[in-house]
Design a protein around this nucleic acid. Structure first.
Length: 569
RNA sequence: CGGGAUGUGGCUCAGCUUGGUAGAGCGUUCGGUUCGGGACCGAAAGGUCGCAGGUUCAAAUCCUGUCAUCCCGACCA
C-alpha cells in the first residue's frame, strides 16, 4: 500500500471529547471516528487492525474445533420472551418495532438465536459436541457509553457457543476455549490474566474473565504473589487467619461514645485498631431488609451478599428503615438484639474477640462483644471485599491488586437456555436430555483499545507486530530525489514479495511529517531511505517499541527486515 | 437515571461578564523558498455561533425551552 493513496488522516491535536489514552490515540491516528455516543466508524487503518485481531481469534477458534456462522442482528421478541429475558434485560436492550408493530430487538448477545437454531438442527447425541461461533456486531444501549471503544453501544464481538451432552463434555469444551483465549491474547501481544469472576444474573457454575492489565481498566482484580490464583474483586476470596490470641472473653460493657459514628472515630476513641471493630450495614432487597456484618476495616461485597440471599436487587436501607429496626441512627447500630430479619455475618467476624460494635442506641457502643455469646447470625458467609494484603485462599501467600480491562469471558451456562427453549437431544438409550451449553465472548474493539492502553508512548501507538495495521513502513526522506524514490520502491516491492504487510510513505511531505505520522500510527518497523542510501548504500531501520535505530546494508535490508517481522508475528 | 460541564470554520479554542452583526492557531487550496523529526514567506477558500422560541432598534453575547456531547456517580451480559 502507498500512503499517497491510502486514507491516512491523523490529527495533530487531541479531540476534546476523548479522555482515555486509547480513545485519544485511536482518533488521532485516524483509526476510528465517532458517529454518535458509543457508535464509531472504523477507518481503513483501524479496520485493518480489527480484522487482524478477528483473524487471530478465527484461527484459534477453528483450531479448537469451532465452526464459524453468522446470525442475524435483528431478533424477534418471541424468542426473548421464551427465554424470559425480554422482561429481564431492561433498558440496555435496543428494542424496535416493524411496520406491523411486531417487537424486535438488536442483538446484545445471541444465546436465544443460537439455541433456537440448535434445537431445530440437533437431535442426536451423535451430533455433539458442537462449537459454533460468529464475529458480529452487538448492540447494547449502555446507560453511559464511555472511553471510546471500551464501552460502546455498537461493538464487534466474537461469541462462541458450545453444545455438549453433559457436564463432563462442557468441562472439556470450556477448557478448550480457555486455552484458545490464552492463545488469542498472547498472540495479540497483550499482558493479561484470566481471573475467576462472578457469574452474575446469568447463573452457572464457573466463569473466568480475561483481563488486560491496565490502570485505566474498569475492573479491579486481585492475584496471588505466589500461586496462580487470580480473581475479580467481585468474587475474590481470602484466607481467614485463625485468631490465636489467648485473650479471655470479657464482660460486655456499654460505652458512652458521643458523636462517634464512624469506624475510624470509634476505633481511635476506644484505643483499638479497626480490625477489632464490627461494621453493621442494613440493606433493602427484594427479599426484605437484610443486616450485613463485617469487620470494621472491611467493605461489604454487595455482589457476594446478593448471591447469599438469592436476591436480584440490593440497596442501602435509608435512615428511617434503620431506625425502625434498630431504634438508632446508622452511626450506632450493631448486630446485637436485632430480631426478625436475616443477619448475614462475614465468617471473619467469628474470629474477633472482645470487639467494639454499635449499641443500637444513639451515642453508645458496646465493647467486649463476642460472636455466639452476644449475637448470632442467621447465616455465616463470605461477604467481605478482598483487598491487597489479604491472604490467598489457595496457598496463603499475600494477594496483590491490579486494574484490568475485561476483553473476554468464558462461561458455563449449563442447561439454562436449552431447558427454557427446549433444545434437547436423544442419547444412546433413547432418553431425551437438554443440551449442556457454554458461551464464550471476546470484545474485538475492546481488545484493540486495550492493546493501545498497554502499548503506547508520548508519540503515539506502539502496535505489537501481530495486530499492527502494517508491519513495516518505508519512508523515503524526500520524493524529490529520484534515486531515493527508486530505491524505496524497490525495497517496497521486495518486502511485498516476501509476504510482508508493508506500506510506503510516497507523499511529497517533509521527512519530519512522515516520521511523526509513523510514530503516531505505530508501525512496528520503519525503514528510512535517505541521502546515505544513495551515497553509501545503507538504510536505517527503527524499531518503534524500543526506539532503537540500526543501519543496514541496502542489499540485505529486505531479507533482514522480513526475517525480523516473521519472527515477531 | 442523579450531579457537573461544554456546544462558535475540518480540529483546538478566544469572544459572552458590560448586546452593535465573528476572531486566532492548526489543517485545506494556490504560488514561491525549503527538504532526515509536524519548515518559512505570500495569497485564498471556508462559519445558519447546536436547535427553537423570547426580550431588544439590534443577540454568539441576556432569558426560556430543547437537543447533543463529555466527566463523576448509580446501573450493567
Amino acid at each position: 500500500m502507498r500512503v499517497s493513496q491510502y486514507m491516512i488522516s491523523t490529527l495533530r491535536e487531541v479531540p476534546a471529547e476523548a479522555e482515555v489514552v486509547s480513545h485519544q490515540l485511536l482518533v488521532r491516528a485516524g483509526m476510528i471516528r465517532k458517529l454518535s455516543a458509543g457508535v464509531y466508524s472504523y477507518l481503513p487503518l483501524g479496520w485493518k487492525v480489527m480484522q487482524k485481531i478477528a483473524n487471530i481469534i478465527r484461527e484459534e477458534m477453528n483450531q479448537a474445533g469451532g465452526q464459524e456462522i453468522l446470525m442475524p442482528i435483528i431478533q424477534p421478541a418471541e424468542l426473548w420472551q421464551e427465554s424470559g429475558r425480554w422482561s429481564v434485560y431492561g433498558d440496555e436492550l435496543f428494542r424496535l418495532k416493524d411496520r406491523h408493530q411486531r417487537d424486535f430487538c438488536l442483538g446484545p448477545t445471541h444465546e436465544e438465536i443460537i439455541t433456537d437454531l440448535v434445537r431445530r438442527e440437533i437431535t442426536s447425541y451423535k451430533q455433539l459436541p458442537l462449537l459454533l461461533y460468529q464475529i458480529q456486531c452487538k448492540f447494547r444501549d449502555e446507560r453511559r457509553p464511555r472511553f471510546g471503544l471500551m464501552r460502546s453501544r455498537e461493538f464487534m464481538m466474537k461469541d462462541l457457543y458450545s453444545f455438549d451432552r453433559d457436564e463432563e463434555g462442557l468441562d472439556i469444551s470450556y477448557n478448550k476455549m480457555f486455552q484458545a483465549y490464552v492463545n488469542v491474547f498472547k498472540r495479540c501481544g497483550l499482558s493479561f490474566r484470566p481471573v475467576e469472576a462472578d457469574s452474575g444474573a446469568i447463573g452457572g457454575s464457573s466463569t473466568h474473565e480475561f483481563m488486560v492489565l491496565a490502570n485505566s481498566g474498569e475492573a479491579e482484580i486481585v492475584y496471588c504473589s505466589d500461586c496462580d490464583y487470580a480473581a475479580n474483586v467481585e468474587r475474590a476470596e481470602s484466607l481467614i487467619r485463625e485468631n490465636n490470641d489467648k485473650e479471655a472473653e470479657k464482660e460486655r460493657e456499654l460505652l458512652h461514645t458521643p458523636g462517634m459514628h464512624t469506624i475510624e472515630q470509634i476505633a481511635e476513641f476506644v484505643g483499638v485498631n479497626k480490625e477489632k471493630t464490627i461494621k453493621t450495614i442494613f440493606y433493602e432487597s427484594d427479599k426484605g431488609v437484610i443486616c450485613a456484618v463485617v469487620r470494621g476495616d472491611r467493605e461489604i461485597n454487595e455482589i457476594k451478599l446478593l448471591n447469599q440471599i438469592d436476591a436480584t436487587e440490593l440497596k442501602l436501607a435509608n435512615d428511617e428503615t434503620v431506625k425502625r429496626i434498630t431504634g438508632s441512627d446508622p452511626g450506632y447500630v450493631g448486630p446485637i438484639e436485632i430480631k426478625g430479619i436475616e443477619i448475614i455475618v462475614d465468617e471473619e467476624v467469628l474470629q474477633l474477640k472482645n470487639a467494639v460494635a454499635g449499641a443500637n442506641k444513639e451515642d453508645y457502643h458496646f465493647i467486649n462483644v463476642n460472636y455466639g455469646r452476644d449475637f448470632q447470625a442467621t447465616k455465616v458467609a463470605d461477604i467481605r471485599t478482598v483487598k491487597a494484603g489479604d491472604f490467598c485462599p489457595r496457598c496463603g501467600a499475600v494477594l496483590n491488586s491490579a486494574r484490568g480491562i475485561e476483553v473476554g469471558q468464558v462461561f458455563k451456562l449449563g442447561i439454562k437456555y436449552s431447558s427454557k427453549l427446549g433444545a434437547t437431544y436423544v442419547d444412546e438409550n433413547g432418553q431425551e436430555k437438554p443440551i449442556v451449553m457454554g458461551c464464550y465472548g471476546i470484545g474485538v474493539g475492546r481488545t484493540m483499545a486495550a492493546s493501545v492502553e498497554q502499548n503506547h508512548d508520548e508519540k503515539g501507538i506502539v502496535w505489537p507486530v501481530a495486530i499492527a495495521p502494517f508491519e513495516v513502513i518505508i519512508v523515503p526522506a524526500t520524493m524529490k530525489d529520484d534515486r531515493q524514490a527508486e530505491i524505496a520502491e524497490k525495497l517496497y516491492q521486495d518486502l511485498l514479495k516476501a509476504g510482508i504487510d508493508v506500506i510506503i510513505d510516497d507523499r511529497c511531505e517533509r521527512a519530519g511529517v512522515k516520521f511523526t505520522d509513523a510514530d503516531l500510527i505505530g508501525y512496528p518497523y520503519r525503514i528510512t531511505v535517505g541521502k546515505k542510501t544513495v551515497s553509501e548504500n545503507t538504510v536505517d531501520l527503527k524499531t518503534r517499541s524500543t526506539g532503537q535505530e540500526i543501519t543496514l546494508q541496502l542489499s540485505e535490508a529486505a531479507e533482514y527486515v522480513s526475517r525480523l517481522v516473521i519472527e515477531n508475528r
